[in-house]
Simulated scan of single mutants.
Amino acid sequence: MEAALRRLEGGAAVALSGGVDSTLLLHLARRHVPGRVAAFHLVTSLQPATERRWAAVVAQRLGAELHFLHLDPLSVADVRANGPRRCYHCKRLLYGAVREQAAAAGLAHVLDGSNADDLDDDRPGLAALAELGVLHPLAEAGMGKGEIRRLAREAGLPGWNRPAQSCLATRIQVGQPLAPERMTLVERGEGVLRRFGVAPVRLRWGPAGFTLQVPPDYHPRLRDPALWGLLRRALEAAGVAPVDLDPRPRPSP
Score class of each variant (00 low, 15 high):
residue 37 V to D: 06
residue 67 H to N: 00
residue 102 A to G: 05
residue 182 R to F: 07
residue 206 G to H: 13
residue 146 G to Y: 01
residue 52 R to A: 10
residue 243 V to D: 07
residue 216 P to R: 06
residue 200 P to V: 13
residue 157 L to I: 11
residue 131 E to R: 05
residue 57 V to Q: 09
residue 104 A to Q: 11
residue 43 V to F: 08
residue 169 A to V: 07
residue 209 G to E: 10
residue 167 C to Y: 01
residue 143 M to P: 00
residue 186 V to D: 04
residue 215 P to L: 08
residue 219 H to R: 14
residue 239 G to K: 08
residue 234 A to R: 03
residue 153 R to M: 00
residue 238 A to W: 00
residue 61 R to N: 10
residue 44 T to E: 10
residue 99 R to H: 13
residue 94 L to W: 10
residue 55 A to K: 00
residue 25 L to S: 05
residue 124 P to Y: 13
residue 117 D to Y: 03
residue 18 G to F: 01
residue 91 K to T: 11
residue 140 E to I: 06
residue 203 L to S: 09
residue 121 D to N: 10
residue 172 I to H: 04
residue 209 G to T: 14
residue 235 L to G: 08
residue 22 S to N: 11
residue 156 G to P: 07
residue 229 G to P: 05
residue 124 P to A: 15
residue 142 G to H: 10
residue 90 C to K: 02
residue 102 A to P: 01
residue 203 L to Q: 00
residue 89 H to E: 08
residue 232 R to Y: 03
residue 191 G to I: 12
residue 137 P to Q: 11
residue 143 M to I: 15
residue 82 N to W: 01
residue 231 L to V: 12
residue 1 M to V: 07
residue 233 R to K: 12
residue 174 V to S: 12
residue 53 R to H: 11
residue 191 G to E: 11
residue 110 V to A: 01
residue 197 G to D: 04
residue 123 R to T: 13
residue 60 Q to D: 13
residue 110 V to I: 10
residue 96 G to T: 07
residue 78 D to R: 14
residue 107 L to N: 06
residue 208 A to D: 14
residue 141 A to E: 06
residue 183 M to E: 02
residue 146 G to N: 09
residue 69 L to C: 01
residue 125 G to W: 14
residue 131 E to L: 15
residue 91 K to P: 01
residue 215 P to C: 06
residue 201 V to A: 11
residue 215 P to Y: 10
residue 55 A to L: 06
residue 66 L to S: 06
residue 195 R to V: 08
residue 46 L to R: 02
residue 95 Y to A: 04
residue 157 L to A: 07
residue 115 N to T: 08
residue 51 E to T: 10
residue 118 D to C: 14
residue 253 P to N: 06
residue 195 R to Q: 02
residue 215 P to R: 04
residue 42 L to Q: 05
residue 46 L to G: 14
residue 199 A to R: 09
residue 77 A to Q: 13
residue 127 A to I: 05
residue 245 L to V: 11
residue 234 A to K: 01
residue 139 A to F: 11
residue 89 H to D: 13
residue 68 F to P: 04
residue 159 G to L: 12
residue 11 G to R: 13
residue 234 A to H: 06
residue 146 G to M: 12
residue 194 R to N: 04
residue 31 R to L: 09
residue 84 P to C: 03
residue 124 P to L: 13
residue 162 R to L: 15
residue 42 L to W: 10
residue 49 A to F: 06
residue 215 P to I: 07
residue 14 V to G: 03
residue 213 Q to T: 10
residue 167 C to M: 14
residue 59 A to V: 07
residue 249 P to S: 00
residue 72 D to T: 15
residue 209 G to S: 14
residue 153 R to Q: 08
residue 198 V to K: 02
residue 21 D to G: 05
residue 104 A to G: 11
residue 22 S to Q: 05
residue 147 E to D: 12
residue 218 Y to M: 07
residue 76 V to D: 09
residue 147 E to Q: 15
residue 1 M to F: 02
residue 9 E to N: 07
residue 253 P to F: 00
residue 43 V to E: 03
residue 232 R to L: 15
residue 183 M to T: 04
residue 147 E to Y: 06
residue 115 N to M: 03
residue 34 P to T: 15
residue 64 A to C: 03
residue 79 V to L: 07
residue 193 L to C: 01
